[in-house]
Simulated assay, not measured.
Amino acid sequence: MKLATFSYPGPQGRESRVGVPDEQGLIDITNAAAELLRIRKGGTRARDVAAAVVPPDMIEFIATGSMALDLAAEAVEAVRTGRIGPWSSDDARVVWPADQVRLEAPLRPRSMREFGVYTEHLEHLGIKVPEAWYKLPLYFKGNPESVIGPDQTIRWPAFTTTLDFELEIGAVIGKPALNLSPDEAMDAVFGYTIFNDVSARDIQRAEQTYQVGPAKGKDFCNVLGPVIVTRDELGDGDLAVIVRVNGREWTRSTTGGMYHPWPRLVSHASWEESLVPGDLLTAGTVAGCCAAEYFLDQGRSPEDGLLAPGDVVEFEVEGIGLLRNAVGDRPDELSLDYGVPLST
């Protein structure tokens, strides 16, 4: 099942719901479930029961598990076969036309662990891979507060001149987990989404000379979307990916080639550290899928600049969809003076 978070204007501002994309627009699965229960059982509490079993918040929906998925699937099928119309019998909207809603990031993750497991990507950028990288799937913690969704503007922070994108796949945790073995790990994964790990390359390079993960170089903007696809629909195999900038194809690649596979990543993240529904694990940049690699192939140094204001970045991933965002304007002041150059 493909699951999206969408919003619409309400009396108290924008209201968010969980929906399933459809040819008609977006199916509000909570309202669809309420109408299905009303048809089956009658009574006056169908809406309350539906909100408990198929919550309108994505993380709550994920945490409800198979009960939510099963009832949502039945409700969506009832809409698609015409048993439920675009409006419920109590005048709640079941099907929203796409032009009346806005797709948001499918979830605001509870936490973000960002791995990097593509050897080819690191070597292409001239990064010396430490010995520990081959033994342990290393990661840093990201900033959930910086997450934006499809078609929202990528903010250009004041401290960088070299703004980059990175196409990654994110796994969303679906249930509490602790100290999982690799054989157990994938049962904790709810589904997958696309992740654009927007990067300030100059300050990132400076930060990582201290042998820590990036902070300011990554924390200002992360993009998720357009949907989460459940494992039962997408599977765990390799996916074809395409990167376009301003409508022109830059890269065509695949998510294959992970040195540490997903079971190892999930297992490692759970060692002596609880995972909870809504946590996000990302696998790192798919080989060839960042501007720095593209320009290196063109014989141009990344230090000469990467993205420009107004650039439109598109990630298309097999089975998940298209994630599109435009780059915002540069601030008037592009430097924060720390007294030392940040490009070394």
Rank of each mutant, 00 (worst) to 15 (best):
P137M: 04
L138S: 05
Y139N: 04
Y139E: 02
Y139F: 15
F140M: 04
G142I: 04
G142H: 03
N143F: 06
P144H: 08
P144C: 05
E145G: 14
S146T: 12
I148P: 10
G149Y: 10
G149F: 05
P150T: 07
D151C: 08
I154V: 15
R155G: 01
W156F: 05
W156I: 09
W156T: 12
P157N: 06
P157R: 08
T160N: 12
T160P: 07
T162G: 00
L163W: 03
L163M: 03
D164Y: 07
F165Y: 15
F165K: 01
E166I: 09
E166H: 04
L167Q: 12
L167M: 15
E168N: 09
I169V: 15
I169T: 10
G170S: 06
A171C: 10
A171E: 01
A171Y: 13
V172D: 05
P176Q: 03
P176H: 06
L178T: 07
L178P: 00
L180H: 03
L180K: 07
S181L: 11
S181A: 13
S181H: 00
P182G: 01
P182W: 03
D183N: 12
D183E: 15
E184I: 02
A185T: 03
A188K: 03
A188Y: 01
Y192M: 10
Y192E: 03
T193D: 01
T193K: 03
I194S: 03
F195L: 14
N196C: 06
N196R: 01
D197Y: 10
D197W: 06
D197A: 13
V198E: 06
S199Y: 06
A200T: 10
A200I: 02
A200E: 02
R201W: 07
D202Q: 11
I203D: 02
Q204Y: 11
Q204L: 14
Q204N: 05
R205E: 09
R205M: 08
R205P: 00
A206Y: 15
E207M: 07
E207H: 02
E207C: 08
Q208R: 15
Q208A: 03
Q208K: 12
Q208G: 03
T209M: 13
T209H: 12
T209C: 00
Y210F: 13
Y210L: 15
Y210D: 08
Q211F: 12
Q211N: 14
Q211W: 11
P214I: 10
A215K: 11
A215C: 05
K218Y: 05
K218E: 09
D219P: 00
D219Y: 06
D219V: 00
D219E: 11
F220Q: 02
F220T: 02
C221A: 09
C221P: 01
N222F: 00
V223N: 04
V223Q: 04
V223H: 03
V223M: 07
L224W: 02
L224H: 05
P226M: 10
P226K: 10
I228G: 09
I228K: 04
I228D: 05
V229K: 08
V229Q: 08
T230D: 06
T230I: 09
R231T: 15
D232E: 13
D232T: 09
D232G: 02
E233C: 01
L234P: 12
G235W: 12
G235I: 12
G237M: 02
D238E: 15
D238L: 03
D238H: 14
A240W: 01
A240Q: 12
I242D: 11
V243I: 13
V243H: 04
R244Q: 14
R244E: 13
N246C: 02
G247D: 10
R248M: 05
R248N: 02
E249T: 14
W250F: 14
W250S: 00
